[in-house]
Amino acid sequence: MEPHKVVSQQEWMKAQTAHLVKEKEYTRMRDKLRAERLELPWVKVEKEYVFDTPDGRKTLSELFDGRSQLALYHFMLGPDWEEGCTGCSFGCDHFDGANLHLQHHDVTLVAVARAPLAKIEAYKKRMGWQFPWVSSNGSDFNFDFDVSFNKEDIKAGKAIYNFRPLDFEMDELPGMTAFYKDEKGDIYRTFSQYARGGEEGIGAYMILDIMPKGRNEKGTMDWVKRHDEYEDDPQLKAMMAGSCCG
């Protein structure tokens, strides 16, 4: 770490106070953005989607599990992949704690991937996760929601990711889509976010952002490993073995 400026307590307080003004501006802007997001138009989901789940085949409507809101995380795990995306795994490590609260606030959280259910279940067990995860294998769901792609569409400029043409070759990419189901059972796609749009849901990043070294990365998530791959941390491995991964 480069040598850093060290000042008196009085000067430190002055700098912190000045920075707080900007942080409050950011907070107010974030609140404004949230309010504007809630005013965005919705689109009705007309197509019938069916998913493979541990409890059998289920429709998109059934994934709501009795609630009116559904948060669907598009996880990067293709049919031929041997294991899940490292970055998606990093993000999903934050889901189970949040899900304890979401379930009691009219939100069902589900992950979805194109891999066959058996592969999903095996990876979920390896990671020790509890949140629901379903397979869209064999359906158009991932392609319709712009998180899975084929080479032909990418070359033709037809592949869309983050609301713009995809300009690099990739068969799977991450995202989160929000749905609402009304009393009649009609389903609406209310919002989708992709790429870095979901960073605020990654609590580890939010903590790193106030640390002296910040995120300390040369490229996005270049330091991240799946949590069972931190071989130099026996404390973490023991913790995982004795709790959620046991």
Rank of each mutant, 00 (worst) to 15 (best):
I120V: 10
E121C: 14
E121K: 14
E121T: 10
A122Y: 06
A122I: 12
A122C: 14
A122N: 15
A122S: 13
A122D: 12
Y123I: 04
Y123D: 07
Y123L: 06
K124S: 05
K124P: 04
K124V: 02
K124D: 01
K124T: 04
K125I: 12
K125T: 15
K125V: 11
R126E: 15
R126C: 11
M127P: 08
M127L: 15
M127C: 15
W129M: 11
Q130M: 15
Q130P: 09
F131T: 07
P132L: 11
P132F: 09
W133P: 00
W133L: 06
W133S: 00
V134E: 06
V134F: 07
S135K: 01
S135P: 05
S136D: 04
N137F: 10
N137A: 10
N137L: 08
N137Y: 09
N137V: 03
G138T: 04
G138F: 03
S139Y: 08
S139P: 00
S139K: 09
D140T: 12
D140L: 12
D140Q: 13
D140C: 05
F141G: 02
F141R: 05
N142S: 15
N142R: 08
N142F: 09
F143A: 05
F143T: 05
F143V: 02
F143K: 03
F143W: 07
D144E: 09
D144L: 07
F145M: 08
F145C: 12
D146P: 01
D146E: 11
V147S: 13
V147I: 11
S148Y: 03
S148C: 10
S148A: 08
N150M: 03
N150S: 04
N150D: 06
N150K: 05
K151A: 06
K151M: 06
K151Y: 02
E152M: 04
E152C: 01
D153Y: 00
D153H: 00
D153W: 00
I154T: 06
I154F: 01
I154K: 01
